[in-house]
């Protein structure tokens, strides 16, 4: 048997992608939960945003950490995708899948689209490139008016459509990613296997439903300025 303690295999990359992916999935879940405060009115959401900004070191460390995790996830993901693509140079003329879901077969695509969406989302709502005048507004307590920004954005059907598309892509990616990551990390059990395989779609549904609730609540006027 060859001596081996390098552990530089595609499986190691997969483990790293799975761990970073689970981290990112955790982030989007908490991101969604935080944003749900939009339903409690401007004070709550703007206060929450201000609370985060009051700790710049924590905030920027978290952002940096998140960025690192995302970069690792993306870089290793791309490397794996390229390796996988090389593994079958000639495609089948006729191909039929029995169990592989659409989501599982489009991970590289949904991942790429998701990246584009996230870049847009950060530029749009965090940096505020869309409408700088809105971005700099303050609410009555002197906090930045994140609430107003959200309300304004989701009154625009163009942004609503874009964010819905983003959620669709996010949902697809998550639905395969979470269960797949559990499998990659060897989390498997005879009796709980259904639970583990349902975890992905459940998390995806949870995050997407939460986010869509915000978007549509604003768009349909259930949450007012």
């Amino acid at each position: 048997m060859r001596r081996s303690n390098q552990f530089q295999t595609s499986l190691s990359s997969k483990v790293a992608v799975a761990l970073s992916g689970l981290g990112l999935a955790g982030f989007v879940s908490f991101h969604m939960l935080g944003n749900l405060q939009v339903f409690e009115g401007p004070a709550a959401l703007n206060g929450y945003a201000a609370f985060l900004r009051e700790m710049p070191i924590v905030l920027w460390s978290a952002r940096l950490g998140l960025l690192t995790v995302a970069v690792a996830h993306i870089a290793l993901g791309i490397r794996l995708a390229l390796q996988n693509r090389r593994a079958r140079p000639v495609a089948y003329a006729v191909r039929e899948y029995r169990v592989a879901s659409m989501a599982s077969r489009t991970m590289a695509l949904t991942g790429s689209l998701l990246l584009l969406f996230i870049v847009f989302h950060i530029l749009h709502l965090t940096v505020g490139l869309g409408d700088p005048s809105v971005h700099d507004q303050l609410d009555e307590r002197g906090h930045r008016d994140v609430y107003g920004k959200v309300i304004q954005a989701f009154h625009n059907p163009f942004y609503v459509a874009l964010y819905c598309a983003g959620q669709l892509v996010l949902g697809m990616h998550l639905s395969h990613a979470v269960s797949g990551s559990l499998q990659t990390l060897g989390v498997e059990h005879a009796a709980l296997i259904r639970l583990f395989r349902a975890a992905g779609p459940a998390v995806a549904l949870f995050v997407v439903m939460g986010n869509l609730a915000i978007i549509f609540a604003v768009f349909l006027g259930l949450v007012r300025p």
Binding site: N84, R85, V99, S104, Q183
Partner: peptide
């Protein structure tokens, strides 16, 4: 030159 597992279970 094999690819990596995609957890799609088509193999099974």
């Amino acid at each position: 030159g094999f690819g990596a597992c995609g957890n799609q279970y088509e193999c099974e």
